[in-house]
């Protein structure tokens, strides 16, 4: 088992979460009865078919929307709204085009009104963006933009990082680099991470635990501890066996 630096992560508990949207007068359930406990410092991958409600689950944990039913506890306290301790990172970098890289990274400091230039410098070098501070977002490549978004998310040392397919739109090679990067950051900072993905390999490379979800409305199909040491190799027989199990679980045994 991996033991990240204690105290930097946040323990999360979801009990009986149900959520949905009213579209044209009809209620459509998106999440139905999800109960999940995440210990501080864990890296949980949520795997499931696209459109199954994984992203909605992250929005609920981030506090952007209150759940229809059920309760979310962060370190034992109910979640009532967004909090800088729980940062959500999106599939798109969503950098503000009118702010340069440095200003984008400093966003949360501008919101709280506490400017700390040393912290900005530190997090910029953490993600390897020194020298690009003054670049405008449209000048960045996809990978660099996502690094900037990562720096923006990490600057205030959040205890929980919610990742909504953050590498989904990157090219295959950049994605490999960013996975290694993400793993390193998680080890260094010791935050709790919940990552939505539909890439089984990515989940196996990064996560300490993989939770598979059903098609919409989402419920938990399986909850697998990945007790393999890091760095995992993608052609390790144990990794391949897990991958086969998970794909079977998701109903893709014959497609692989």
């Amino acid at each position: 088992m991996v033991t990240p630096s204690p105290g930097n992560g946040l323990a999360l508990s979801l009990s009986g979460i149900r959520h949905g949207y009213t579209i044209g007068g009809d209620f459509t359930a998106v999440v139905s009865g999800v109960t999940l406990n995440v210990a501080a410092g864990e890296f949980v991958a949520l795997l499931g078919p696209s459109g199954c409600g994984k992203s909605t689950l992250l929005r609920l944990v981030a506090g952007l929307e209150p759940p229809h039913d059920g309760e979310i506890l962060a370190d034992g306290l109910p979640v009532h709204g967004p909090d800088p301790d729980r940062i959500l990172m999106f599939q798109d970098p969503t950098l503000y085009p009118w702010r340069n890289v440095r200003q984008n990274v400093a966003l949360s400091q501008d919101i709280s009104g506490k400017r700390d230039n040393a912290a900005i410098d530190q997090v910029l070098s953490l993600v390897g963006l020194n020298g690009f501070e003054r670049a405008w977002p449209h000048q960045l490549s996809g990978g660099m933009a996502q690094r900037a978004a990562l720096a923006r998310a990490l600057i205030n040392r959040p205890k929980l990082l919610l990742l909504d397919e953050p590498l989904g739109k990157l090219d295959a090679l950049t994605r490999l680099t960013m996975q290694t990067e993400l793993h390193r950051l998680w080890k260094e900072r010791g935050f709790t991470a919940i990552m939505v993905t539909h890439d089984v390999e990515e989940a196996l490379f990064l996560a300490t635990r993989i939770v598979t979800l059903s098609t919409r409305p989402a419920r938990i199909l399986s909850d697998i501890q990945v007790d393999l040491p890091f760095h995992r190799h993608r052609d390790d027989p144990q990794v391949l066996q897990l991958r086969r199990d998970i794909l079977t679980q998701l109903g893709h045994r014959d497609d692989w």
Binding site: R59, A62, P82, P84, I87, L88, D92, T94, I111
Partner: peptide
């Protein structure tokens, strides 16, 4: 999404 980014940081 621009609003969500700022809101998740407490704006």
């Amino acid at each position: 999404a621009y609003y969500d980014v700022a809101r998740t940081m407490g704006a």
